Computed example of a mutant assay.
Amino acid sequence: MSDEEITYATLRFHKSSSGLQDGGRPDETQVPSEASHRECSVPWYLIAIPLGILCSILLVTVAVLVKHIFQYSQEKHELQKTLNDLHQEYSTMQNDSYLREEMLRNKSIEFEALREHLDSLNRKQNRCRGETKVVLDCKQRTGKHVEARWFCCGIKCYYFIMDGKQWTGCKQTCQNCSLSLLKIEDDDELKFLQLQINPSSYWTGLSYETKKRKWQWIDDSPLKLDLNITNFNPNTRRCVFLSKTRLDDVECDQPYHCICERRQ
């Protein structure tokens, strides 16, 4: 009996141990499932890190690309501005070049005109006849012969009558000989005549009209020369004489020589 109880106890012990073993099996089966779960979660974690790194790289790349694109846009804008400035400078240089060409062309035209004018003056001067004495046949009106020295130059002939008269007397003498008192056209003719005359003074066809209150030539044309007028009185009749040094006015009753002219 005691052996059986011992055996029983032993059986119970083994049963309990077997039960413990049986009870431990679920635990053993649960441990591999948790391990498998852990084994499955570790690869996702390892994948997330590269993905994060890859996203960061992509963001950096995008940022770098945006920066380069912005810099490219800025450089393009600056280059376009520089190109526009160069184009404007080129257009300005073209305009300046055109203006210079126009100025050169105009100067060339002016030069040609001046050269032609000079050639014309030279031809006129070459046509000037030397001074000679002549006896003017004025007897058709006065029955007198008038002695004068004369020369022609260009389109005019000048007659120097060495006979002192008042202004009206010289005017009448020139008219009697189918001539007219001298009319000086411009400064060139004035300088030319001053080189030709002797130190005497000669009446010209210029006088001051008190009624019209202006200087005018005997053909009623206006004065275009500068007069060296001293103590001018507009209420008195004044006449202009020519000397080797000046063209001036004086009272018309002074006795001066005469310069008559005629056109060829």
Rank of each mutant, 00 (worst) to 15 (best):
D27K: 10
A113C: 01
W203D: 03
Y159M: 02
C258D: 01
I218F: 05
C153F: 04
K211C: 01
F111R: 12
T168V: 11
E147M: 04
K81C: 00
A113H: 13
A35W: 09
I197H: 04
T61N: 10
L51M: 12
W167A: 08
H77T: 05
C40M: 07
R213W: 00
V240Y: 04
S41I: 13
D186E: 02
Q254S: 04
D137F: 06
L58N: 05
P255W: 02
E89V: 07
R246C: 02
H68N: 12
Y159L: 05
C239F: 01
N198F: 01
K244I: 10
N84S: 15
D27N: 06
Q80N: 11
A48H: 06
T61G: 14
I197S: 02
C152S: 15
L86H: 09
G130N: 14
A148W: 03
R213K: 15
K212S: 12
L65N: 05
L182P: 03
G164Y: 07
L86I: 13
I155V: 10
F232Y: 08
Q80S: 12
G154F: 01
Q94I: 03
S91P: 00
M1L: 12
V64L: 11
K214R: 15
L65E: 03
L182N: 02
D119S: 14
Y202I: 05
C260H: 04
F111I: 09
N122H: 05
C157D: 02
C260G: 14
G164F: 02
K76H: 13
